[in-house]
Nucleic acid binder design. Structure first.
Lengths: 159, 159
DNA sequence: TTAATATTGTTCATAGTGTTAACTAAATAT
DNA sequence: ATATTTAGTTAACACTATGAACAATATTAA
């Protein structure tokens, strides 16, 4: 009896495991599609869009700071900035208080692009919520938080 | 009064939108970290791992079929297969019924790798569920399904 | 049956994302 | 004053991916 229940529970867990894996993969795929779409819509490689998105709310950023926020090597940031600056979306100025540091800021053109991108992202995430009723919104968000917490716990075990 | 309620609802929606966007980003980041980890653990580029994962359950695959499943160009598949075959994880044979077609199958070494990878993925997704109680498992999965459905609906609107 | 067309897979050129190591210049600590 | 640390750049490399041109083979139509 107990044995059968364990069997059944094991089967359910196996089924749920597969289900979970598949759904997560589908969601990640949707997000990747969205990145591609944004990249095309805004005419910039996604890495440059991600970089632009760091600025709203901050006047200046340093290469080091951007590298930390994007979680990439500083050399990668240098290259992304070369591109953004070449396209007149950003400028590099030397920090007057420390000549090693470059202060990066957006040009008006860059600010506009960042704002458009921000609006677009707000819009599609808003549309996501509009697909749901009030209760569903709360549930989805809280269950996603649960999942994120679980993922971080499992990540700890892994490393 | 009604006005105030609308304001409040709008604020809530804005807050939820931000929240949703951030959590999704964190979850996607976790998944990317996992891909990197798997790549290192199994000593293969992630694209090759993804390719290996297509085989369990299918004896032979064609370049075209793999390209469709991975959602990449055929030329990309050719390169991935060159690598896998160079490492003795797969072989190419000409389809006896259509000389244009190459039938790709895994070597025993490739099958073993694919199985190890499958087990590992089952394990970590199982561990994810073990972080939760019975009710939470059901809720997380059903809310993820809701989210996936919403994402696909919004994607339709976008294109 | 031959000629035109379509399909399968490869090669090549190109672009994008990312890393590490070596380096320059500037600031700090000894 | 010298040694060390920090900030950013450069260069070499690896991985992911695309599209166009191409060769070989199949299929369709004349």
């Amino acid at each position: 009896m107990n044995n059968i229940n364990n069997e059944t529970n094991g089967d359910l867990l196996n089924y749920q495991t597969m289900r979970l894996k598949d759904i997560i993969a589908e969601i990640v795929q949707c997000c990747d599609d969205r990145k591609l779409y944004e990249s095309q819509k805004f005419g910039l490689p996604y890495s440059e869009l991600k970089c632009l998105m760091l600025f709203p709310g901050e006047r200046y950023l340093t290469v080091k700071g951007i590298a930390e926020k994007l979680q990439v090597a500083k050399s990668r940031v240098t290259k992304i900035l070369d591109c953004l600056i070449g396209k007149r979306f950003a400028v590099r100025i030397v920090d007057p208080t420390d000549a090693r540091v470059k202060l990066i800021s957006l040009t008006p053109k860059g600010k506009q692009k960042a704002e458009e991108l921000e609006n677009f992202q707000r819009q599609i995430h808003g549309n996501l919520l509009l697909q749901m009723n009030n209760q569903e919104r709360k549930n989805v968000i809280s269950q996603l938080e649960l999942l994120r917490t679980a993922m971080e716990a499992v990540k700890e075990q892994m490393v």
